[in-house]
Design a protein around this nucleic acid. Sequence first.
DNA 1: GCCATTATGTTTTGTAGAACAACAAAATCT
DNA 2: AGATTTTGTTGTTCTACAAAACATAATGGC
Lengths: 416, 416
Amino acid sequence: MPTPVPTTASNHLPPSRTPSDPQSTSARQSSLRESNLGLVVRTVYASPTALSRAGVAGRTSLTRSTVSRLVDDLVAGGVLAELGQAEATGRGRPATPLVPGAGLAALGLQVNATYLAARVVDLRGTVVAERVEYADLVSSEPAPTLTRLAALSTQALKEVPGDVRLVGAGLALPGIVSADTGRLLLAPNLGWADVRPADLVRRAAIAGLTLNVGNEADLAARTVAEMAPGRPSSLRDFVYLSGEIGIGGAAIVDGQVMQGRHGWAGEIGHVCVDPDGPVCPCGATGCLEQYAGRRALLAAAGLPPGSTPAELRDAARSGGRRAERAVSRAVKALGIALAGVVNVLDIPDIVLGGDLGQIADVLAPGLEVQLRSRTLSARWVSPTIHTASDDPAPGATGAALRELSAVLAHPAAWLP
Amino acid sequence: MPTPVPTTASNHLPPSRTPSDPQSTSARQSSLRESNLGLVVRTVYASPTALSRAGVAGRTSLTRSTVSRLVDDLVAGGVLAELGQAEATGRGRPATPLVPGAGLAALGLQVNATYLAARVVDLRGTVVAERVEYADLVSSEPAPTLTRLAALSTQALKEVPGDVRLVGAGLALPGIVSADTGRLLLAPNLGWADVRPADLVRRAAIAGLTLNVGNEADLAARTVAEMAPGRPSSLRDFVYLSGEIGIGGAAIVDGQVMQGRHGWAGEIGHVCVDPDGPVCPCGATGCLEQYAGRRALLAAAGLPPGSTPAELRDAARSGGRRAERAVSRAVKALGIALAGVVNVLDIPDIVLGGDLGQIADVLAPGLEVQLRSRTLSARWVSPTIHTASDDPAPGATGAALRELSAVLAHPAAWLP
DNA sequence: GCCATTATGTTTTGTAGAACAACAAAATCT
DNA sequence: AGATTTTGTTGTTCTACAAAACATAATGGC
């Protein structure tokens, strides 16, 4: 059974607001060590090839002796591991390659309108265990749904080897979330409002850990920003669009999710695209969702509500007139909304995920044209559309990644 | 004459991108000291009342002895000063009040469509010297304009007492700026493109310092975020709108200007408000500027192009039909654009500056209604409109503040 | 095959900076 | 006047890193 870490599990989440000053707390000797532990860990994790102690010393400006001391502790704590086989590297004593440890992992859960998912991901980015269950959760009840999710989680946890320690549990939700109180304020498509998931999930189903909730798009965007824990992808700044029934979004700046004042940033789905457009359940008019959300797209294309995004894409590609019109209407709306975002945020890379990722190839060309003509910065940097990999439940992975990132940020808390 | 600091003057600007990891460089003993020096400085500066050494020790978790050592060095370097008179504070040995030093100051310059300005601001926020010259700089020539600015700067520097050390020089420009190369890429209203101001201003006019350029709205927003160097105002997160001929903007998150990928974030003036709206010189259609920029407002109100914002406001308040219509058209456009920004950034506080600040009282009521109906978060946090204080050249002050903030961030670099 | 060379990793010693504790200073309260 | 209280200073101890010497384990030249 995975062993929870009671002393540190509750306070390992970064504060809900991004800290402005580098160190707002006093620095003592131990902070030095903590900072350098983090530096060593991040250096090893970020490197595409396995580094040795000397390699880490070369990349950081630490000495070999210091790195050695720190690495020894990190290996003992399971954050790093020594790869036994020394690869032949020319002259000199062969190096001991260092890799992320496999002894620490995190649990990521997700509730979406069409599925439930539970995943356990370790520090290497390996999915240790996984359960996904498809279901229609539109206008569902929170309690029974979360009970089903807990069952999935329990099943997944049974598959986790006994020597793996769980460091945290996260839950991705498609709605407005108050991370500090652990409350889901509103999830229009689930029909949920003011729910505290931690109260409805048995503690045993999450290995006794505190359950940290988060917005689905924010967490899914993490899977784009990091290919594995601590290993940044080539995109450091991008806007992620999560197309489902509604449209969620997140802005990633320098690899970090932009939270905003309350953690509600990224609600691109309700940017106004046309003041005279259709009324949105949110109360405003002409919201992006009313043009590029799943329901709006399928309805405009004349497809039955149960159709898949792939069917829409195929219809548009094979010359279906209504499908083509629906797509070009969505492209225009996305172009207006995203151009505004690019102008305001200065982030010219857009990643399409969820439904929008699946129809990205019919959206991207027109969208790039729109963005080039509507963004001020296009004359210097051309906006680019990317497609997210089609993970069945990116929010679950992202929730686990968020928990694991706490280990990389402050490894000292997880050392014996 | 002010003495430049050659060894540190060139590299005291924060990197153009916000650093993601707290310490990406190795921490040694000296980093500890640097960090704590910064902590002490920020604690003293941020406090509304003068703190003693013991007071600082109480607020930070440093010991009195450590604070004492650090404060002694900071006083010697001019970053802090001891206030002679000990105020009676009850029992015990009277405390020595610590205040920001007056020995360090920065130069802030500004070029705008209607004026040139030069200011010297010290660490206490006192304007040591100032020159403002009004002029019509629409479609002007960069070289002669910057020569006039240099003359203003030279005059202002003459007024600076000899014992004041200048730590940096900044220039606020109304356009797209590439901070790392020191280049103004485009300033539509000045008619400037691809200008390197540092090449056109004599070094003597900026006391031999390197001239750091910045966007006017970004820098003006700093004057709202800080009432004095290191003293944060009550607003920690807000969107600043700088209404001039064009409309510039900046988003401030936790007291820091959001830069974006290239430092071009905040271009709210070119957010699309109506896809079928008028064509904008930028190439897009229905940009906010076409509704709420000065020219658009005056034209819609039927006032001559040379009119002031105050005249427009008075016309609208005294029942001028066309003026009223112009204002309500601008309110609607601002509402749509700002609602999008609030939805994406989760920053419900808006500060109106420049022309928009002057007509804020006729804009604010309607604008708040618009925002309440168009933002998703309004049901939990009501969006609020604020007005910036009517500083004649907020960009110049902000440019100086940015230079001074480098001293507060890394005081060690300025100690003897 | 043996020894120089080279790079990795460990041990030892030195040092900087903060905590801790004791003390000196300067006021108020009784 | 003496006890009390708070501020600021002066040693001493402790911790973590740097620097340098040393140990280790490979390759390469003869």
